[in-house]
Design a protein around this nucleic acid. Structure first.
Lengths: 348, 348
DNA sequence: CAGGCGACGGCAAACGTTTGGCAACTCCTG
DNA sequence: CAGGAGTTGCCAAACGTTTGCCGTCGCCTG
């Protein structure tokens, strides 16, 4: 028995008419949580007719009536970044059970675009937002939007913000890298820092520097911060270090894997070998960095878990729960791009 | 001048009341295409009040009235696959101008899930769908849905389907690999085939086999097809070939990069070097495969362009255009995992 | 048999827009 | 000043639901 015609616009009214009851009765009969208000015989009949006619609830109309759209906005800076995808993946999985779907937009790390998107999402009456694109200057509009709809920060923290967030501990990550270097005997180190207005990077920087200071290591300060966390910027910063310092670091911390890749190119061009001449660490553990030669030591960024936790959190918030932020622990993935410092017998 | 309170529910009525006109007048004054129907003085006043009150159109209500939601569904098999992300990226960019946003769901390559999602998207009254998850068995429900709303197939073609699509020419891609092998002097070759119910793979297989036959090459047929296009399946198939054949192929075509990675592991375990002992080609040109050692020769799959073209196509369709499918050309990216066959002087 | 209660289902309002039709008003022309 | 055209804005219906309230009916209890 085919669900009859392609069922363009079968409404509650159509079913009601066919069965001979009022539309509201049909509405109740089809809603599991209200079905008990309808006699079983009537209910069965309604459900049968609904199935035969191929009834499909009009979620837009329902949304207008109930004020809920079963939609969560996901706002990313750049979908091209292979590290946001897993967040979407995790988010989608987490909210699926609640019959919610993510609706996606991209800010391109531009403040005005971000503001426009935020506004647009509010217009769409999304039930909540997961934001992975917040930059320092976005705090005010973000918090103002958060008074209207629950917002969770994911992946990218935001300094001085009270918004609930799901991030991992970038400061600790930076410390772990420094500690790793220290343990391997490196004493002269440096870091290639990501953009300063994306809160992850200052935190990584602070964790790294603090540990170095405490451990009495010698941190060569690179000139500035990258404008974007991409390979070419990693290469640029690496070159600056190679040209600027009178003493070369024996270990380098790039603030993410992409920048590490750029640094790698710069080092190779100079004939410096990894890890023989210099150790290199990235951040994020992108899909394939473990298959490079040498496999890249890095800090695993649990994007998938971040996305999932953000999804779960936003659903809790919608259920009226208190906001509880999550701080996931970083994890060092030790591979072959770092190794113990062997002091050259240059004083032979 | 702050947009006053957080502007929870400012409606057209509120503005109308404040200005002293009818809501319909406000509606027109705020709609650029209808603004000429209201006197300039009134219009200015309305717009001023709207701005002051922080009015935000209720897109759900509008959607109910107009029947359009400014939403395009994107249905993927697996968001974890790093090759669908660029499609989303391109799609989002292409429909942004039309003030449309993608709403996303995942089928996990399961037929029932796929059917449920399709239905759900229809319930949400999306304006169109871009489907990158179609498998052979999904044709009927897909075409039935396509009678209700425009649907474009992206990335994954569907055999015997008349639906408009944006794909690239997998058959030609397969041919190009075979031709590449032939040009390098390889005469005994094999392919590690992806799942048979995802139309890309049979096409790649056919293109490859046909060329081999025409060119008089010797194709060693591997036992079966992968159940999923992933690394472990590539490894499994590779092992089968290594164990099964009495003659080893000198060049191997893995149906995608992930499977190539698996094959690579299997070869390395056997002590076979790439490309010295055997040449290897993948498919897709995933972000980092060019940085592996050796860099992987592969066919570039233009995901971004596919996404963009799909977005543009669906917008044209919404504008009432005829459906015109796109067939993008594959491109061989020649790297160091393949090389000219040097006949060993084993008859010394 | 009165009174009460639970089960069932109808009614109508409401959610915030858009839009076709129409009325009123302004202004111009003859 | 009559008539007509054009401009401006009101009215009301419609989109498809959900839901609080109320009426009716049947049954049970005392």
């Amino acid at each position: 028995m085919q669900p009859s015609p392609p069922s363009a616009g079968v409404t509650l009214h159509d079913i009601a008419e066919e069965v001979g009851v009022h539309p509201s009765t049909v509405s109740r009969a089809l809603d599991p949580s209200k079905a008990h208000r309808v006699r079983e015989a009537t209910r069965d009949q309604i459900q049968a007719v609904a199935a035969r006619l191929g009834y499909r609830p009009h979620l837009v109309a329902r949304g207008l009536q109930t004020g809920r759209t079963a939609t969560i906005a996901f706002i990313a800076a750049d979908l091209g970044n292979t590290f946001v995808t897993p967040i979407i993946h995790g988010l989608a999985g987490a909210i699926r059970n609640a019959a919610m779907l993510p609706i996606i937009a991209e800010t391109e790390d531009d403040h005005d675009t971000f503001a426009a998107i935020l506004d647009h999402m509010l217009s769409r009456r999304v039930d909540g937002m997961v934001v992975a694109a917040a930059r320092t200057g976005d705090r005010v509009i973000l918090e103002s939007a958060a008074r209207i709809v629950p917002i969770v920060l994911a992946g990218r923290p935001l300094e001085d913000s009270l918004l609930p967030h799901v991030v991992h501990d970038d400061r600790q990550g930076g410390e772990m890298v420094a500690e790793h270097f220290h343990r391997l005997g490196h004493r002269t180190v440096t870091q290639l820092r990501g953009p300063t207005d994306v809160a992850n990077f200052p935190r990584r920087a602070a964790g790294f520097s603090d540990y170095c200071r405490r451990a009495g290591m010698d941190e060569i300060l690179a000139a500035g911060w990258a404008s974007h966390p991409i390979a070419s910027e990693g290469e640029r910063l690496m070159l600056e270090v190679l040209e600027g310092a009178d003493e070369l670091p024996s270990a380098i911390f790039a603030h993410n894997d992409l920048m590490a890749l750029g640094a790698r190119s710069a080092l190779q061009d100079r004939g410096l070998r990894i890890p023989d001449d210099v150790s290199l660490v990235g951040y994020n553990d992108l899909p394939m960095v473990g298959r490079l030669t040498p496999p890249l030591t890095t800090i695993r960024y649990p994007s998938l878990e971040v996305g999932r936790a953000a999804g779960e959190l936003i659903i809790e918030l919608l259920g009226g729960a208190e906001s509880t932020s999550h701080n996931l622990s970083p994890q060092l993935v030790e591979r072959a791009s770092t190794r113990e410092l062997v002091t050259a017998p240059h004083d032979a």
